[in-house]
Simulated assay, not measured.
Amino acid sequence: MVGFGWLVLALVFVDELLAVAAFGVWGWQQDPRWLWVWLLPLVAMTAWFLFASPKAQYGGRLRRPVVKVVVFGLASLALWDAGHPVWAAALLVFSVVVNALAQVPAIAALATPEE
């Protein structure tokens, strides 16, 4: 179970990278492109760092899942709006599945920061 747990956590990290990339894809299609293509991923990473990461300074039992839903939901909407509806749906389904698996107690314990 430990090996599967680490695989799930690795897929959660891949999911986070895909969400950031989705914001970059959407930003690339906006004007001014040079601003949005780096600003949106930076905002998403900052929100994740502050509220959703395992060691988030402002995370909590309510804020962490809300920010995760917002980030992955907006990333999927960004892909949809950028003209990639199949990829948007795939990202949304992938996000739901891997994040649900990450909530299994044995897997969640692997991601709990030690103090």
Rank of each mutant, 00 (worst) to 15 (best):
P32E: 11
L62A: 15
G59K: 01
S76P: 00
F49L: 14
P54K: 09
R33V: 09
Q103G: 13
V25P: 00
V70S: 03
D81F: 13
A44G: 11
A82R: 02
K55P: 05
P85K: 02
W87R: 12
A100G: 14
G73C: 09
V104S: 05
G27D: 02
A100K: 14
P85F: 05
G73A: 09
A47R: 02
L39G: 00
F49V: 09
V98P: 00
T46E: 12
D31W: 12
V98L: 08
L39F: 06
L42C: 12
L35W: 13
A52N: 04
A89T: 12
W28V: 12
A52Q: 01
L79H: 04
V98Y: 05
A75K: 02
V25R: 04
L39A: 10
S95M: 04
S76I: 01
L42N: 15
P65V: 07
G27S: 03
G59L: 03
V43P: 00
L50T: 10
L92I: 09
V93A: 11
K68D: 11
V69E: 10
W36I: 02
T46V: 14
Q103S: 15
W87P: 11
M45G: 08
M45Y: 12
A89F: 13
K68V: 13
W87K: 14
P32K: 08
W80S: 04
G60S: 08
A82S: 09
V98T: 04
G83N: 08
P65C: 11
A44K: 00
A56Q: 06
L74W: 02
A100W: 15
V43D: 04
W26V: 08
V25Q: 04
